[in-house]
Design a binder for these strands. Structure first.
Length: 223
DNA sequence: GACCAGGCACATC
DNA sequence: GATGTGCATGGT
């Protein structure tokens, strides 16, 4: 561990502390079951969470938030139910594909899935149509309890503005940055990502609202 | 009425 | 491997 790495780790944990003091514990992921996390991870792709909540409520009301039932349901039925979350045709197909994968390979049991080696499972998820890096990592961390840091658009934007990343850092580069510098701690990864999303939603948008930003005291932001 | 949201796949160069 | 485009609803 170099002196530089130690400094960055300390700063990242300081940022985490400021965010946690500001937002409090966020208790992610908001879901009743691991399968609901998986469905939410697909539905939230490039979509506001408020719209995802409507789609999930529709699935629940129609008894379709169940891997076997989702697998069997008609695509048009699922598309109608997830309509509020946007891209409903794509997402209906991807949800059905995922439900079939989860049922056929793991007997719809997240515990069996969680026994797999993390890296191998990640590659497997990435091979499915509709599962990219963020969705795969969200499933690994929030549904299966794997120690995996999740990156999203807010993470890249905020930490580029704070000077830790190049402006257009890619997914894996950003993930490696956090994984390299943070202690390997599932609970920390879980809560840190949630805190960053709240930072992004409330302050660090494309049109930023820097006044009263919880990180304002750092005075390192490039904006 | 534009802009944005907790991305991803695919085509093309 | 980088860059562009389609997918689509709902809130600000």
């Amino acid at each position: 561990m170099t002196a530089d790495s130690t400094k960055i780790r300390k700063e990242l944990l300081q940022i985490y502390g400021l965010l946690y003091d500001h937002f409090g514990p966020l208790n992610w992921w908001p879901a009743e079951t691991p399968f609901e996390v998986m469905v939410g991870a697909i539905l939230t792709q490039n979509t506001a969470w408020t719209n995802v909540e409507k789609a999930i409520a529709n699935l629940k009301q129609n008894q379709k938030l169940d891997p076997r039932k989702l697998k069997r349901a008609r695509k048009e039925t699922i598309a109608r139910l997830v309509r509020p979350s946007g891209y409903f045709n794509q997402k209906a197909e991807r949800l059905k594909d995922y439900a079939a994968y989860f049922t056929n390979n793991y007997n719809s049991d997240w515990r069996i899935m969680a026994e797999r080696d993390t890296h191998e499972l990640r590659e497997e998820l990435l091979s499915l149509r509709g599962i990219g890096p963020e969705t795969a990592d969200s499933i690994l961390l929030y549904a299966l309890g794997k120690t995996v840091f999740v990156v999203d658009a807010y993470t890249r934007r905020a930490f580029a503005r704070l000077g830790y990343l190049p402006e257009y850092a890619g997914y894996d580069f950003t993930k490696d940055f956090f994984t390299r510098h943070l202690p390997e701690d599932k609970e920390l990864y879980n809560e840190f990502h949630a805190q960053i999303v709240y930072l992004g939603k409330d302050y660090c948008r494309t049109r930023p609202r820097c006044e009263s930003c919880p990180l304002a005291t750092l005075s390192k932001c490039r904006l």
